[in-house]
Nucleic acid binder design. Structure first.
Length: 643
DNA sequence: GTTGGGAGAATTTTT
DNA sequence: TTCTCCCAAC
């Protein structure tokens, strides 16, 4: 028997060993949230619960993986049979098992953001004659997505938005309807559909829901504050039979409301689950008291939150967080670099240091200077590996190879050929009868016969690769399949098309490395749309890439560093201009709070006074962020100019 | 129908 | 600065 009391503090212990029934764990930043969840899994297993009957839901791929790794360290390989993953992953899995009831065939495709946008654009052009006087596809997408994620009324949302020109809400509805029809015709689902279709499946087929609800004796949810209406209902449904639900979250850290997340879900939990046990984790094991003090002061300005206070457990660091007022971006960069160098001199490693910012492009200037001065750094860019054109090309080709071709992948591959564009691809797909499987000789001959003359040579090469894929059994060797595509044809295409062909070829090598041991190509293809750039950085790769970490605050959630530097603490930057316009300062403050609480010992906040606007004359003058001004004077050290 | 050039816009956060 | 859209020439 494990001595749980020796491993955990009293509140953690209470949560971990809670008896059956609903439990809400309010876990402030750095209070051992992940530790509590993973120990809960281990404790349940020690009580004799089969891991196959446990469902563990997270929001990001990284959190899912970390959770699994840490639980495995506790209980060993038996953990492999636990159901765990992001909401999207788990819904995806359920939908594959019940595709027909949900209104698709089992081989349905998941549209990533770009595919979804282009399909929506098509719907838009079909419905609206003059698209110049109509919201653009991105705006429509966010409108439709918001309606889906909040179960909101699209018509009302469209009416409420103050467009410069009058927009007919009926037209918006019509576009949305057309978009849904196109997805159905293509046997495809977008990200939001994964959630909404699963919920609808549960509602329309109670017997299907019952199968899962009976199976999952325990449901555990991480980051509950970030659930949207749909996700909260999915959780409620899945836990409805055994009523063993543990939701862990921190309303202070709800930073995804643009995706429909509503921290009121966590506030409403006790009403939806009457008699639930509530455990508060407030003892912080991460940050020095000086850092917790400004975090507490910052969040106190959000009146609508559950007030709770981070209690320090670490000894004082001996210095307050530093706020540096700088002249401009150049001086800010100098400050950052000097601070990094000082930290390195006092014994920190580059990996102990992170620079955080609100939006990816805020890091551009700093990146140049770091490179120039040869300070090692790693940056997770906004453009994900799986969103880049060349990686999508390779993935599309793998779809053709493995008989999982859909319209999108065929169009993508054919579009690479000279003289073939969207229309030709569409025509060929129709002539093939909306299916293509290279295992059937007739399909391959039929496709080859329809390729225009100009593209025949290229197609012969690709067709040869299709044959080799089959003959060499590459369905079980995705790594080799990608390499073959690159070397057999695509590299030549890259070189005649792009000036950065080498970089792109390297990305394909990275793609090839993504195949896990024993993972077949079809398995990989099923989930590839749900992978993100962070997925590309598995824990090992991250540890192997040393250097100062540059990251957005969103991507830094759940992580920690001894030294944290936050740049561009200015109005219109942090909080962002858009958030101010849309009156989302509360959310931005929570985001700022997340940024502050990443720091363990040393925190630097940079406030430049101006910025050169790229491409324009002169400078833009900046005001210090309201979040800086609201910090009580005695909690920070202020400095004007460089060290 | 495709492709390339050129002008123009824009640039949050994630599954 | 990089992507995106639009238009005109093959």
């Amino acid at each position: 028997m494990t001595d749980w009391a020796a491993l955990l503090n009293p509140e953690q212990l209470e949560a971990v060993t809670a008896p059956d029934g609903p439990v809400l764990v309010l876990a402030a930043a750095g209070t051992g949230k992940t530790r509590t969840l993973t120990h809960r899994v281990a404790w349940l297993m020690e009580q004799g619960v089969d891991p196959r009957d446990i469902l563990l839901l997270t929001f990001t791929n990284r959190a899912a993986r970390e959770m699994l790794e840490r639980a495995e360290a506790l209980v060993g390989p038996a953990i492999g049979t636990l159901w765990s993953g992001t909401f999207h992953h788990v819904c995806h899995r359920i939908l594959r098992q019940n595709a027909r009831e949900a209104g698709r065939t089992p081989s349905f495709t998941i549209l990533d953001r770009a595919d979804a946008l282009s399909l929506l654009n098509r719907a838009l052009k079909e419905v609206v004659a003059d698209t110049r006087h109509f919201p653009k596809k991105e705006v429509l997408a966010s409108l439709i997505g918001k309606a889906a994620n909040t179960e909101g009324n699209l018509r009302q949302l469209a009416e409420n938005i103050a467009f410069e020109e009058a927009v007919d809400p009926d037209k918006v509805l019509e576009v949305a309807g057309r978009y849904a029809a196109l997805k159905e015709a293509a046997n495809a689902l977008d990200f939001d559909d994964l959630l909404t279709f699963t919920l609808r499946l549960f509602r329309e087929h109670p017997e299907t829901l019952a199968r899962y609800a009976h199976r999952f004796r325990h449901v555990l949810v991480d980051e509950y504050q970030d659930t949207n209406t749909i996700q909260a209902q999915l959780v409620d449904a899945l836990a409805s039979h055994h009523r063993n639900l543990m939701a862990v979250g921190d309303d202070f850290q709800c930073i995804y409301s643009w995706r429909g997340a509503d921290f009121r879900n966590i506030m409403g939990f006790p009403e939806r689950w009457p008699g639930c046990r509530i455990v508060k984790l407030e003892r912080n094991y991460r940050s020095a008291p000086e850092i917790l003090a400004i975090a507490n002061a910052t969040i106190a300005n959000n009146p609508e939150q559950f007030q709770k206070t981070l209690l320090p457990t670490l000894p004082p660091a001996g210095r307050k967080p530093l706020v540096a007022f700088l002249r401009d971006a150049a001086e800010q960069n100098q400050m950052v670099i000097r601070h990094i160098q000082r930290a390195l001199q006092s014994g920190y490693r580059p990996e102990d240091i992170a620079v955080l910012y609100r939006a990816h492009f805020h890091a551009m200037e700093l990146e140049l200077d770091l490179r120039r001065l040869r300070v090692p750094y790693t940056l997770t860019s906004g453009q994900g590996l799986f969103e880049s054109a060349h990686v999508k090309d390779a993935v599309a080709f793998l779809r053709l190879c493995s008989g999982l071709a859909d319209f999108f992948s065929l169009q993508r591959v054919l579009g690479l050929l000279p003289g073939v564009g969207p229309k030709t691809a569409e025509r060929i797909w129709a002539q093939l009868g909306g299916t293509f499987d290279p295992a059937r000789e007739t399909d391959r001959l039929g496709l080859a016969a329809r390729i225009p003359k100009k593209a025949q040579d290229d197609w012969r090469a690709l067709d040869g690769l299709l044959a080799r894929y089959r003959d060499e059994g590459l369905a079980e060797n995705g790594n080799r399949a990608v390499t073959l595509f690159l070397e057999g044809w695509y590299n030549a295409y890259l070189q005649r098309t792009y000036d950065n062909a080498e970089d792109r070829a390297e990305d394909l090598a990275a793609l090839a490395a993504q195949f896990r041991k024993g993972q077949s190509v079809p398995e990989f293809l099923n989930e590839v749309a749900l992978m993100t750039n962070l997925e590309a950085e598995n824990a090992q790769a991250l540890a192997d890439r040393p250097g100062v970490r540059l990251s957005t605050v969103h991507q830094a959630k759940g992580l920690e560093w001894p030294v944290v530097i936050i740049i561009w603490c200015n109005e219109d930057y942090f909080p962002s201009a858009r958030a101010i316009m849309e009156d989302l300062a509360g959310e931005e403050r929570r985001l700022f709070y997340v940024a502050l609480t990443r720091a363990k010992q040393d925190l630097l906040l940079c406030v430049p006074a101006s910025r050169r606007v790229p491409g324009k004359e002169g400078v833009q003058y900046l005001f210090p962020s309201r979040f800086i001004k609201q910090i009580p004077n005695d909690l920070v050290t202020k400095r004007y100019g460089l060290y």
